[in-house]
Every structure is written in structure tokens, then in C-alpha cells.
Simulated scan of single mutants.
Amino acid sequence: MEKKIGRPAYKVVLSDNDRKFLEGVIRATTSPQSHVTRAKIALGAADGLSHEEIVELSGVSSFTVSKWRKRFSLFGVSVLSDAPRSGTPRIHDDDKIAEIIRLTTTTEPKNATQWSTTEMARVAGVSQSTVSRIWRTFGLKPHLIEYYNISNDPNFTSKVRDVVGLYLNPPEAALVLCVDEKTQIQALDRTQPVLPMTPFVPERQTHDYIRHGTTNLYAALDTASGKVITQTTTAHRAVEFISFLDLIDKEIPKDLEVHLIMDNYVTHKTDTVRKWNLEHERFHFHFTPTYSSWMNLVERWFSELTTKMLQRSTHKSEKQLIAAITKWTETWNENPRPFRWHKTADEIFKSMEKYLGPFTK
């Protein structure tokens, strides 16, 4: 008896531009998860994977894979974000859509650094609404830009593993402290009184202000408890940093080892600081990679201080500013909130691949 053969799978054929676009959808952190899944289905089908392999790759049901494989086969990548609908047939074919995507992602207009819907419509010979619809469908936003800064530290990987190891697996009988300084905090006062918030009217301040001096704030954040040791100074030289280290030494019980995570600022690495470290054997210095302040959790605490107190407060003198910082810190320490680190070193390296390609660790 002859074996019954199932319905043949729909064949998906992708151009080079289609493939680049779908791979971009998968890499982009802003892509909706549904788009990422559908892009994987299309690429898997085009690469000749079996139906079962695509199901495993995409993590969705067999029915969903069949549905989207058919749509990509019949209508191309233009159906990524929506199913084909009944009604008026579309005016522009896949080539025109691909051209608009190519122009948007690989070229610039003559009179600007990024495309507008008006300019793209003029160059591509379509309506402005068509450009808007295509950009929206494929998640293209020429007016937006993301900033990044990749460390050039030759010891980047070892430093990342060292610091992350302290966060995720802190040593026993030891404290892990994140240390840094927030410099040149200004005591600012508005030129006219601040008008309080009223129903339907927000708090109002003048745009201009008067400066009444500055201060520098050293902080050491206990990663386990969230408590903070602070000291304000008039300058931020090595001598002030050593004074702050002496304060930490005084505050921490003598039977505990102390691991300090800090950045590569020059005052952290002077000969006098190294000498101090040699004389205090229980202190261990760990440096974050260059351009990687995001790895120091005390920056999170500085952000809390800035947004919840410094940003909108007014101070008529440097003394008043220091008193306000001290009071805010004391209140924080009454009910501290530790900042938890979640990413492993390998996860950090993986996230860098969208900027650097495959990352060699």
C-alpha cells in the first residue's frame, strides 16, 4: 500500500536585502518579540530547516510556524508585522518597499543627517503616508539615535569578570563597597521664589539661578545592605581620597576584609594611594574597565540623590548644601535599599555583540 505523503511545506525565498533586514530585526533590542519570532521562522525556512527544527528554534507552536511560513512564502517579508488583509490591493510591490528600506538604512538625504517622511516620499516617488506605514511596519525610526561607548581597556574581560564576581559571589567575612566621588555639586538658588504646585498647575521655578559655591561628595555603597558612607570635601585630590579611605577604615569592623570597587580616576592610583593600600592589607582594590562607570553600583545611588534631592532643591550657601546632603544620606541609611546586580559576565559579553559582532572573551 502506498504511503500517504503530507502537504509539501511552503518554500520561502529571501533576497540579500530581506535577509539583512530580518537579521537586523532579531538583533535590535527594540524589536517586538513577535517580530523576532517571525523573523526566525522566515530565516529558518529560507535556510532549509525542517518544520520541527523551526518550531524548536522559534519557540512557538507548530501551527504558528505553518501559518507564518505560508505568509512569508506568498507575500514576502512585508507581512512581518501583520497578516495580509482583504480589500484594496496594495499599490507598491516588494521591490519598492525594499528600495525604501534600503534608502532609509544605508543612505542620507542631501540636506540633512536623517530622512524625514516628506523627503523620503519625494525621493522614492510615493506618498508620505506610504513611507510612514512602511517605517512603522519595519520598526524604522530615523529620528532616533542610541548612544554607546565601548571600553578600550586591554584588560576589559578580566576586569568585568572580577567585578561581576564580587557582585554575584561576594567573599565571606568581607564587605564589598562601591566607591566613587560626585564632583562639583553646585549650591544653587533661584533668582525668584519657587511657586508651589496648585491644582492643575505644576511647581514653577525661574530658569536662571545664583551659584553659592560647590562641594565634592565621596561615597562608599555597601552592596549587601545598601548603606552608604559619605564625606564632603572642598577638593578631590589624592589627599582627600586617602582621607575618605581612612574614614572607611574607621567605620568598618577590623575583623572584616574590605573589597573596594572603583573607577580608573587618576587620584585612585597615585603613589600615595598605593602606599596607603600597602599599609592597610585588609583593603583590596578592584578597578572597573575604562569607560564603564555603569559597572559601579554607587552610580545608582548618586542617581537617586540627584533625582530625589539635588535636581529641584535650592541652597543659599555651600554649608546649606552639605547639610542637605548629610540629612538625605542619614534618612537613606535608616531604611537602605541595596541595588542588585543580575547580569553575568558572559551575558554582558553577549549583549556587546550587537555593536562589535561575535565577541572574543
Rank of each mutant, 00 (worst) to 15 (best):
F283Y: 02
K20L: 15
T64E: 02
T214A: 08
S303D: 13
F339E: 10
T104C: 07
R161A: 15
E53S: 12
H259Q: 11
R136A: 14
H268D: 11
T118E: 07
F200A: 10
P338S: 10
S293H: 02
E56N: 13
T106R: 00
G59P: 04
T157I: 10
N264R: 05
E56M: 15
K67R: 12
A235W: 00
N17R: 05
L356G: 11
V201Q: 06
L188K: 10
G24V: 06
W332L: 14
V258I: 13
F283E: 04
A324S: 12
I91N: 02
T105H: 01
L43E: 03
T267E: 07
S116C: 07
L260K: 01
G125E: 14
H212D: 07
D18R: 00
F302H: 00
S66D: 11
S313H: 13
T331Y: 03
K4N: 14
H207A: 13
I91W: 00
E23L: 08
D246Y: 01
T267Q: 11
K40N: 12
W294R: 00
K182D: 15
A9S: 09
A39S: 08
G44T: 14
L297N: 03
Y167D: 12
E146G: 08
T326C: 12
T206S: 13
G213E: 09
P338E: 10
R102C: 13
W341V: 14
K269C: 14
H207Q: 05
E347M: 11
Q184C: 09
I41S: 01
V228A: 02
L256P: 11
P109H: 02
E2I: 14
S61F: 10
G139A: 06
L221K: 02
W328G: 09
W115K: 04
R190W: 07
T329M: 01
T270W: 03
H51W: 04
V194Q: 04
D180Q: 05
K354W: 01
I91R: 00
E299H: 01
D246K: 04
S293A: 05
V160Q: 06
Y265P: 08
S243G: 07
W328Q: 09
L103K: 01
D271W: 04
A112G: 08
A121M: 06
R237S: 07
V239S: 01
A124D: 08
P336N: 01
W115T: 12
W135D: 11
E203V: 11
Q192E: 15
L305D: 10
F285N: 02
K141V: 12
V55G: 05
E279A: 08
P289S: 02
W301F: 13
I91V: 10
R71Q: 12
K269Q: 14
T314V: 14
A324D: 14
Y10L: 08
R237W: 02
I145N: 03
I41M: 01
P84C: 08
F138C: 11
M295F: 07
P170V: 13
K11E: 14
W115G: 10
Y10C: 12
W68C: 05
K250G: 09
A98Y: 02
N155S: 15
S151N: 05
L310F: 03
E53V: 14
H286Y: 02
M120E: 06
A235M: 03
R312S: 12
K343L: 15
S15A: 09
G139F: 05
E99I: 09
Y147H: 08
H236P: 09
T191W: 00
V298N: 02
Q192G: 15
T113H: 05
D263M: 09
M309Y: 09
F287C: 03
T118R: 02
V298F: 01
I100E: 03
